[in-house]
Design a protein around this nucleic acid. Structure first.
Length: 570
RNA sequence: GCACUCGUAGCUCAACGGACUAGAGCAUCUGACUUCGGAUCAGAGGGUUGGGGGUUCGAAUCCCUCCGAGUGCACCA
C-alpha cells in the first residue's frame, strides 16, 4: 500500500520528468503546509528558467487526483501543498484495515544477517552490551516487519586464551560448585578469581597454558569442561534477554568457536586468490588505503606467525559463511564505533576475495558510548563496569517507587514497573542518534515527562482507558476532520510508514522514536481540545474513537518495533 | 603523525542542500478546564549552529582550514 507521501509524489513525478527526465520533486513534510515541494528551484536552475515560471507550469499541469486541496507558490519557488480531507480519510481507512498499518513490504525482500549483542562467556553482561543489544534488536524487528528474512547472530566470545585459566579454575572449584556459582549469575566473580590465581600463581599459570593447548587441540575432556562454561553463560544471557525483552534465542548463538573449522578454508581461499602475503611469518592481506603510524601498509592478519588464528580470521570466516551458507544479501554488524577500522578492513578483504560485492553488502552499524553523569564512560562509583542485570533491576526498582507515589493499588504494579523501566532504558538509548555518545541519566529517562518511553506508554494507556470507560460506544462510520487538532493528528497518523522507512534507511531507530513522540504529542493536543466521550454527537464521537483506536495501534506497533511494551494501564 | 566519529539554547537532543522567527524535551516563568487518567495542555524568555574562509539564488547540512572532545592505528577481542 502506498503512503500518502508516495501517492502525492507519484502525481508530481510525471510533470517533473516532462521538464527533465529523472528529476526529483523533493517532496517533504512542511511547517508551512502539509507538504512542500523543494525540487523546483534546482530544476529551474538546470533548465535556465526562472523558478516561479517552472512552479507555475507544474501547478498548471499536475493532476493530484483529488489528493491535494490547495497548492501555493511561495518564496523563491516552493510549492506548499495542503492535503484534502477526502485524501486523509481514504488513507486512514486503508491504514486502519491493514494489520501492518500501511507499512509496505520491502519491494525486494532480503536475507539480512544481523550480528548484535555478543557478550563474552564467563563474563558478566555490562552496560557496554546494552546499545548493541537494544539497537540490534530493534533493527531486526523493523526489518522483519517490512518483510525481510532476518537471521540473528549472537557472536559470543567463547574462545581464546582466557579459557585455559577459566577451565583450570573450574576444575579447582569442582564442577558442581562451579556450576552452582555460575548459575547464580556471578560470572564476574568467577572470572576475577581465575584471573587473580593466574597472576599470582606460577603453577596455575602453567596449567592454564597447557589447558589452552589441550583446548585448541580438541581434547575431549577439555572441550566438555569448556562446554559447561559456555552453556552456563548462555543460560545467564538468556535470562537477561528475557528481562530486557530481547528477541535473541539460544538458537541464534553462533560464537567465535563455531568458525574454528572454517579457518583453514578461509586461508586456502584467500591464498588461491593470491591475496595472502607472508609478513614476519604471519599470513596477511594488505587492503588498500590503510596505513599504520609510520605510513606503512596495515595488514589484516589472517593467520598469526605461531600459526594460530585471531579475531580477524574469525570475522572473515563469518562473512564467508553468512554469504555462502546463509545466502545473505546483507550483513549488519551492530558493534561499537571503536571497531570501525577493523570492520572496514575485513570488509575490504572480503570484497577483494569476492565474497562481498554490489549484490551482497556488509555494513558496520556503529554506535557511541554510554556515558555516566560525569560525561565519561559509565562506571560504578568504585570505577568498575556496571552490570547490566544490576542496571535493569535498579530501573525496575525506581519505576516501582515512582508508581507507588502515584497510588493506585494495582496488584500488577511490579509487572507494570518492569515494563516502564525497560521502556525507559530502551527509549533513552534508541532515541539518541546511534553515532553519538549519550549520557545515562535515571532521572531524565524515568521522569515520565517529555521525550521518554513512559510518556509514550502513558499516551497509549490513556487511549485504552477511553475504551474501558465508555459503554455502548459507536463503531465505524465516517472519519470527520473538522478541528485543526483532528487534522494534525490525521497527518501524523498517515506518516507511520514513512517513519519506519526512514529509520531503516539509515538504520537508526531514533527516527522512529521522533515520529512516535510527535504522534503522542499530536494525540494529547487532540485529546485536550476534542472531547471524545463527550463529543457533540454520535457521528463525531465515532469518528474520534476511530482516530483514538488508530493512534493506539500505531503507538503499540511502533513501540513494539523498538522492543518496548505498551501496557493498557499504568 | 595519519584515519574515523562528534561539536547546535543553561542541560539532553532534532533538523533528509531549502524559506519570513534553526526546532523539541528538561529546567525557568506565565496561564488553563475542580480532568474522557494533570505522568496533561496552551504560551513566554533563552541561539553570531566551536572559530574563520569558500561553493550556492539558498549552508547547521557540501568543500577547505583551524580549535576542542572521543576512538583506532601488526600478530588481544
Amino acid at each position: 500500500m502506498p503512503t500518502l507521501e508516495q501517492r502525492i509524489n507519484d502525481c508530481l513525478v510525471p510533470v517533473f520528468h516532462v521538464l527533465e527526465s529523472g528529476s526529483d520533486p523533493v517532496l517533504r513534510p512542511s511547517e508551512h503546509a502539509d507538504f512542500q515541494v523543494n525540487g523546483v528551484m534546482g530544476l529551474a536552475k538546470r533548465l535556465g528558467v526562472k523558478p516561479r515560471e517552472v512552479a507555475e507550469r507544474i501547478v498548471n499541469e499536475v493532476d493530484f487526483a483529488g489528493l491535494i486541496e490547495t497548492v501555493e507558490i511561495a518564496g523563491p519557488g516552493f510549492l506548499n501543498l495542503t492535503v484534502s480531507e477526502r485524501a486523509f480519510v481514504e488513507q486512514l481507512e486503508m491504514i486502519a484495515s491493514d494489520e501492518h498499518l500501511g507499512v509496505p513490504n520491502a519491494t525486494a525482500p532480503e536475507v539480512v544477517v544481523v550480528d548484535y549483542s555478543a557478550p563474552n562467556v564467563a563474563k558478566e553482561m555490562h552496560v557496554g552490551h546494552l546499545r548493541s543489544t537494544v539497537i540490534g534488536d530493534s533493527l531486526c524487528r523493523m526489518l522483519e516487519f517490512t518483510g525481510n528474512r532476518v537471521i540473528r547472530r549472537n557472536h559470543i566470545g567463547d574462545w581464546g586464551t582466557p579459557f585455559g585459566m577459566l577451565i583450570e579454575h573450574l576444575i579447582d572449584q569442582g564442577e558442581d560448585a562451579a556450576v552452582a556459582n555460575l548459575s547464580m549469575g556471578d560470572l564476574d566473580g568467577f572470572y576475577r578469581e581465575a584471573r587473580t590465581k593466574f597472576d599470582a600463581d606460577d603453577v596455575f599459570r602453567d596449567r592454564s597454558r597447557q589447558r589452552v593447548v589441550l583446548l585448541q587441540g580438541g581434547d575431549a575432556e577439555t572441550l566438555r569442561l569448556w562446554g559447561i562454561l559456555v552453556q552456563e553463560s548462555i543460560q545467564y544471557f538468556g535470562a537477561v534477554y528475557q528481562e530486557l525483552g530481547i528477541t535473541l534465542s539460544e538458537a541464534d548463538v553462533v560464537g567465535e568457536s563455531s568458525y574454528n573449522d572454517m579457518l583453514d578454508d578461509v586461508v586456502a581461499d584467500l591464498d588461491a586468490k593470491g591475496l595472502l602475503v607472508d609478513s614476519d611469518g604471519a599470513l596477511c592481506v594488505f587492503p588498500e588505503g590503510f596505513v599504520n603510524r609510520d605510513g606503512e601498509p596495515l595488514p589484516v592478519i589472517v593467520r598469526k606467525s605461531d600459526e594460530g588464528y585471531g579475531y580477524a580470521a574469525t570475522d572473515l570466516a563469518a562473512i564467508r559463511d553468512r554469504v555462502s551458507n546463509l545466502s545473505a544479501d546483507r550483513l549488519l554488524y551492530v558493534v561499537g564505533s571503536p571497531q570501525a577500522q577493523h570492520f572496514a578492513m575485513c570488509f575490504a578483504v572480503a570484497t577483494m576475495a569476492g565474497w562481498l560485492n554490489d549484490q551482497v553488502v556488509a555494513e558496520h552499524v556503529a554506535f557511541g558510548n554510554v556515558l555516566g553523569p560525569d560525561r565519561k564512560m559509565f562506571k560504578t562509583r568504585e570505577g568498575g563496569t556496571v552490570k547490566l542485570k544490576v542496571l535493569l533491576d535498579e530501573g525496575s526498582e525506581r519505576a516501582r517507587a515512582a508508581l507507588a507515589e502515584r497510588a493506585s493499588n494495582d496488584g500488577d504494579r511490579d509487572h507494570i514497573a518492569h515494563q516502564l523501566a525497560m521502556g525507559a532504558i530502551k527509549y533513552a538509548d534508541l532515541s539518541t542518534d546511534r553515532q553519538r555518545d549519550y549520557v545515562f541519566d535515571w532521572d531524565r529517562m524515568l521522569a515520565f515527562e517529555g521525550d521518554t518511553g513512559p510518556y509514550l506508554q502513558y499516551a497509549h494507556a490513556r487511549i485504552c482507558s477511553i475504551f474501558r470507560r465508555g459503554d455502548d460506544l459507536p463503531v465505524g462510520g465516517p472519519i470527520i476532520l473538522g478541528e485543526p487538532a483532528e487534522r494534525a493528528l490525521a497527518l501524523q497518523l498517515t506518516g507511520f510508514a514513512d517513519a519506519v522507512a526512514s529509520a531503516l534507511d539509515v538504520l537508526s531507530p531514533a527516527k522512529l522514536c521522533t515520529y512516535l513522540f510527535e504522534l503522542a504529542q499530536s494525540f494529547t493536543s487532540f485529546y485536550e481540545s476534542c472531547p471524545v466521550l463527550k463529543a457533540p454527537d454520535r457521528t463525531i464521537m465515532a469518528s474520534r474513537l476511530t482516530l483514538c483506536r488508530l493512534t493506539a495501534s500505531t503507538l503499540q506497533v511502533g513501540l513494539d518495533l523498538l522492543g518496548i511494551e505498551a501496557p493498557e494501564q499504568m
